[in-house]
């Protein structure tokens, strides 16, 4: 079946929500998401990962002690991915989670107020580039402040639409 049309279906099929400067939400490209499993309590691999996965285009997120997420908008080919994994050598194991977790971007003046409807994190204390795992309503979410008023939410694919719907619901007043 080499002529079969293989289709990729994104987890969030809904159109972006909101376009005001108060609040906007959009699904981010399902490019690349790699879960790095270091040894908890051992070396901090952030710099190593930055070196391995490049500079600006890749973004390294902390993900609990000894673990990181590498995200990028562009897909990574299977051979490139394998090559990267091999270069990690014994320092860490890597697991491709490109399809397992999806990214949603929420932004705007009111974004912090909106997130406060779900998470108990004091977002004032989260600097640009910092990440945290937390509960957003009833769903576990990885939050990263990517700019002053812009956050990236990483969520299990199966919960993606549910999280999206809940945020869209909570956003009604902005």
């Amino acid at each position: 079946m080499s002529d079969f049309e293989l289709i990729h279906r994104p987890a969030i099929s809904t159109k972006p929500v909101g376009s005001s400067d108060a609040f906007a939400m959009k699904a981010m490209p399902e490019g690349t998401l790699i879960h790095i499993l270091g040894k908890p309590g051992a070396e901090n691999l952030t710099a190593t990962l930055q070196g391995l996965f490049g500079g600006e285009a890749n973004r390294i997120r902390t993900f609990g002690p000894g673990q990181w997420l590498v995200v990028r908008d562009e897909p990574t080919s299977r051979s490139d991915m394998q090559a990267l994994f091999e270069r990690l050598d014994t320092r860490a194991f890597a697991v491709d989670q490109t399809h397992g977790r999806i990214r949603i971007e929420v932004a705007g003046r009111a974004v912090q107020s909106l997130l406060a409807k779900g998470t108990a994190i004091d977002l004032n204390a989260v600097a640009v580039g910092q990440s945290a795992m937390t509960l957003m309503g009833h769903i576990s979410v990885h939050i990263t402040r990517v700019a002053l008023n812009r956050f990236e939410l990483i969520v299990l694919r199966g919960f993606g639409q549910s999280l999206w719907d809940e945020i869209a619901h909570l956003n009604a007043d902005f």
Binding site: R9, G137, L156, G158, F159, Q161, S162, D165, E166, H169
Partner: peptide
């Protein structure tokens, strides 16, 4: 709070749901 009706609890969707 908002957790009633459609938002009572999250729905976990299989990639083969649709």
């Amino acid at each position: 709070g908002p957790h009633h009706g459609h938002h009572f609890q999250p729905v976990r969707k299989s990639p083969l749901h649709d």
